[in-house]
Structure formats: structure tokens, C-alpha cells
């Protein structure tokens, strides 16, 4: 861990430095005092339980989708379908869970399993198309995203919405994940699930034989094939597992916050997961920190919008991606 940090320190420092410089210059260009803005950020975001809680809440969703993307990228597959997988998992969980007469201790694990299953199913189609028909996963996962959005949209409006609303029925109280005591912020126990999962993915990829095989498929498929790895089956498995991880992202909103599925409830979190994984160089533990960075930028805009337009921070999110990937290529050193 420390060795990794030392190796990666250079590009991290340079890209954060550039982003920070752009932020300061933009604030000056808007005729505001950067110190006022940073003061506000410290006071209302980092030191106030509510602000910090909202940031952690946003980071939670991003850790799940970031892990989903990172797992696939690590194994050489460019799965950009986290958005669709998130919606598939969340929707399946939201419509099935209210019909399960289970006590809390069973219901919550069941919900997690259903969400993972839904996301996995959405990863299964591109997995099959890749393994059996050679169809490129960038195209298939992107198409599956839009199909998921349109399909859940249709199913909600035609069948599953509560009268007078655009969301599904509420889940039974036994499925609620506890909120964390940070004023009225939305952060909840999903955060711990996400962090535990990051360590689990790390362990799986680097300390189990199957994880080693999956990474081998990514770094050198020909060599993997020669040494007897069933590459097609492994490709299929990678895309399904990656889908399962992104599918779990919905628990943050549904089990931990609003307790129902609503169209567009996590809009963009799947796409942002791609950025989260890339900035973390597809290291599962790194995903936690990278998710915190993007959650910070997103919450920072809301925090200081009385002084500068919050849209400035949306630009910064795009800029961070670009600056980081360029700096990784330029200063990143060997893998």
C-alpha cells in the first residue's frame, strides 16, 4: 500500500496541483476571493457533519460503480455499462423486495443478492456477445445502458409506479439500512458495505487463483489460453461480476435513503464510475479515495453556490479526468 502510494505519488501530486491551480484562477476570474471559497468549503463541507455526510453518501454510490468498472478494466474489458447495470439491479430489487416476507436479518442479504443478480444479468448479455460472437464490449455495454434506462422508465410508468408518483412502492421497514448519525445527511450503512467490498475485490483479484486467472486474461489473453485458462468463460465471468458490483450501487439510495426506486435516481453515477476507476488506476482500494474526490467536487459545488456558480465544479470533474489520464500516461511510471 505505502509502496504503491510512493510510486503513484508523482502523477497524483501533479494532476491535483493543476486542478487546484485551475480552480484558483477560475475563482479569481469570477472576481471572488479564493480564500473565502476555501473557507466556506472547510466550514460547511469538511467540518460540518451534514456536509461531510452528504459527501460520503455520494461517494458510496461511486465506490460501487467504480469497483464494477475497475474490476472489468483490470481484466482488460472496457465495460462502460455500469449505468445500465446499476438501474437493472436497483429496479429488480425494488420490485421484488416488497413481496419477500422475511425478517431483517434475511431480508437485507436477500436484497443485496437480488441487486447483484440484476446487475449481473445486465452484464451477462455483453459477456455472452463478447465470448461467443466477438462483439466489442464498449458498444454492447453502451447500448445496454440506454436499453436499461428506457426499459425501467417504461416499466415504472406502465406498471410499477405508485398512484400519483413516479416511483415504486416503498420497501418494508425490515429492509432499511440504518442511517449514520451525521445530522440529517443521507449517508447510511451502505458506505461500510461499499468499503468492505473494495477490500474483498482487492483480495479476490490479487490473492485467489481465480482472480489471478481473470487478471491474466486481461494482461495477456494468448498466454492465458496457452496455459489452459478457458478464456471465453473467464471473459463472460468478468463482465457478469463487474455487473454485479455496479448492480449493488442502488442499495445506497433504496435501502439506505428513500426506500423506493425512482427514475433517474442516480443519474450519471454509472458513467462517473468509469472516471472513478480510471483515476484509481483500477486499484479497488484506490477506488475509495477516487470516489471521495469526485463526491467532494460534486458536493463542493452545492456548498459554495452562493458565491460562485456550482457549475464550475462540474467543469472541474471533467477536467480532473482529462488531467489525470494525461498525467498518468506522462508521469505514471510502470504498472
Amino acid at each position: 500500500m505505502m509502496k504503491a502510494l510512493a510510486r503513484e505519488g508523482r502523477w497524483i501530486a501533479i494532476s491535483l496541483g493543476i486542478t487546484f491551480a485551475v480552480l484558483v484562477l477560475s475563482i479569481l476570474a469570477l472576481r471572488q476571493n479564493p480564500l473565502t471559497v476555501f473557507g466556506l468549503l472547510a466550514e460547511r463541507l469538511l467540518l460540518k457533519p451534514y456536509g461531510l455526510g452528504q459527501m460520503l453518501y455520494k461517494a458510496t454510490t461511486l465506490i460501487f460503480t467504480g469497483l464494477g468498472c475497475a474490476l472489468a478494466f483490470r481484466c482488460g474489458l472496457f465495460n462502460i455499462g455500469a449505468e445500465g447495470q446499476l438501474y437493472a439491479g436497483a429496479f429488480l430489487m425494488a420490485v421484488v423486495a416488497p413481496h419477500l416476507p422475511l425478517p431483517m436479518i434475511l431480508l437485507i442479504p436477500a436484497c443485496l443478492a437480488i441487486a447483484a443478480l440484476g446487475g449481473g444479468l445486465w452484464g451477462l448479455v455483453p459477456g455472452w456477445l463478447k465470448a461467443k460472437r466477438g462483439a466489442h464490449e464498449v458498444i454492447t455495454t453502451m447500448m445496454m445502458n440506454f436499453i436499461a434506462l428506457a426499459l425501467t422508465n417504461y416499466l415504472i410508468s406502465a406498471h410499477f409506479h405508485e398512484p400519483e408518483t413516479i416511483h415504486t412502492a416503498e420497501l418494508p421497514v425490515a429492509a432499511y439500512l440504518p442511517q449514520l448519525p451525521m445530522e440529517s445527511s443521507a449517508v447510511n450503512a451502505s458506505l461500510f458495505v461499499a468499503i468492505a467490498l473494495a477490500f474483498a475485490v482487492h483480495y479476490f483479484l490479487w490473492s485467489t487463483p481465480l482472480g489471478f486467472e481473470l487478471r491474466a486474461v486481461g494482461s495477456n489473453p494468448t498466454a492465458a489460453k496457452t496455459s489452459g485458462v478457458p478464456v471465453d468463460m473467464r471473459i463472460f465471468l468478468i463482465l457478469v461480476l463487474s455487473g454485479c458490483l455496479s448492480g449493488l450501487a442502488g442499495i445506497n439510495f433504496i435501502l439506505g435513503y428513500k426506500h423506493y426506486f425512482e427514475q433517474g435516481f442516480a443519474s450519471g453515477a454509472g458513467f462517473m464510475g468509469i472516471a472513478v476507476a480510471l483515476v484509481a488506476k483500477n486499484y479497488p482500494i484506490g477506488v475509495i479515495f477516487s470516489a471521495l474526490l469526485f463526491a467532494f467536487l460534486s458536493q463542493a459545488g452545492l456548498t459554495v453556490q452562493s458565491v460562485i456558480p456550482r457549475e464550475l465544479f462540474e467543469i472541474l470533474q471533467g477536467l480532473v479526468i482529462l488531467v489525470v489520464v494525461i498525467c498518468q500516461n506522462k508521469y505514471g511510471g510502470a504498472e
Partner: peptide, 8 residues
């Protein structure tokens, strides 16, 4: 990245 940047 360009898509994110332009959206912002």
C-alpha cells in the same frame, strides 16, 4: 472526458 467537460 470531453463529454463531462462540455456538459459542465
Amino acid at each position: 472526458a470531453v463529454n463531462f467537460l462540455v456538459a459542465g
